[in-house]
Computed example of a mutant assay.
Amino acid sequence: MLKVGLLGAGRIGRVHAQAISAHSNSKLCAVSDAVPEAAESLANEYGAQARGSDEIIADPQIDAVLIATPTDTHSDLIETATAAGKAVLCEKPVDLSLDRAVQCLKTVSGRGKPVMIGFNRRFDPHFSALKDSLEAGEVGTAELLSITSFDPAPPPVSYVKVSGGLFRDMMIHDFDMANFLMGDVPQTISAVGSSLVDAGIGAAGDVDTAVVTMTYADGRIAVIKNSRRAAYGYDQRVELLGSKGLLQVQNALENTVVKSTAEGVVGAKPTYFFLERYMPAYRVEWAAFVEAVANGSDVPVSLKDGVAALAMAEAATLSMHSGKPVRMEEVLKPVAK
């Protein structure tokens, strides 16, 4: 039985608490949060203890910690937890700073403790089925990838100000999905972005609408489209054109009823947000982490994967501000020293 401490009792912490408690081989033992009342509420809900983060990490009875705290705490907590002998699953991104994330990777790489980054979409049954079809050669070689990710509504501007921006906070999932499906990091990244949804987001120095084009060393191309607003719901689609065919993942709908009348054909909207769309993926993600820790095998999404996605977000940010394509080696070279 894997004994787990949860660091962070906010919205995403609650999602992870469900996944931890639902697994037959893990137990949520302790919860911490900067707001003690939040930790106590969540701990009471799952029969755990509300404790301080340092206390949880130092407890030799705790086998693993799940980090769901604000992003600027992630690297410090990863380092502290692995130094204490804990296995770690940390929410994305690794850090707001690429330099700090690379330093974290170097610090923990020799400790022999598993660190997994929470890119849960890799574990979505629809996307993983597409990946399986691609690897089986069913559509030949991947040539052109298109990822669409639109939120139903923008987050509060107060959140935007501390999130690291759209590329680090939202599109980072899509950067990792591109790496997952294409099997490589792109060679160049070109990005454009605008503030079309909420003027407050623009005033905070961020964008809410963006398109990124990525090219690979072998000529393959990937395009990512993000928006903070889709009036019809949570739009999550992937289309991959191969040399022998096309693979697509369409939206998960509220229901599968289609009404056809003389007035037209009408179907349901996409599910409203990530809780409805991706809860099964969070459970599969946690199961994969538990299995890796139990078997001593490699985690399926490594800290190195997290750094790669953050580097892509950095490249996209630089490209958007400069109006020019950015080569990934330009981003990674300064931090590789």
Results as ranks from 00 to 15, higher is better:
1 M>G: 09
4 V>T: 12
7 L>S: 07
8 G>C: 08
14 R>S: 15
15 V>M: 15
19 A>G: 06
20 I>T: 02
24 S>H: 13
32 S>R: 05
42 L>W: 03
50 A>S: 10
51 R>K: 14
58 A>T: 07
68 A>M: 07
77 L>N: 08
78 I>S: 05
93 P>G: 03
97 S>Y: 02
104 C>L: 04
105 L>P: 14
107 T>H: 15
116 M>I: 02
120 N>M: 14
130 L>I: 09
133 S>M: 10
134 L>M: 05
143 E>W: 11
145 L>W: 00
146 S>N: 15
151 D>W: 04
154 P>G: 01
163 S>N: 05
163 S>I: 00
164 G>N: 00
172 I>Q: 03
173 H>L: 03
178 A>P: 08
189 I>E: 02
189 I>D: 05
189 I>L: 15
192 V>G: 07
195 S>I: 00
211 V>P: 00
216 Y>Q: 06
218 D>Q: 12
224 I>K: 08
224 I>S: 05
232 Y>G: 15
234 Y>H: 11
238 V>I: 12
239 E>G: 13
246 L>G: 11
248 Q>I: 10
261 T>A: 12
264 G>Q: 05
266 V>E: 12
272 Y>L: 14
280 P>T: 12
282 Y>W: 11
286 W>S: 08
291 E>C: 10
292 A>T: 09
295 N>S: 10
302 S>Q: 07
306 G>V: 00
306 G>L: 00
309 A>V: 05
313 A>C: 09
314 E>I: 10
318 L>N: 08
318 L>Q: 13
318 L>K: 14
323 G>H: 11
324 K>Q: 14
327 R>L: 04
334 P>N: 06
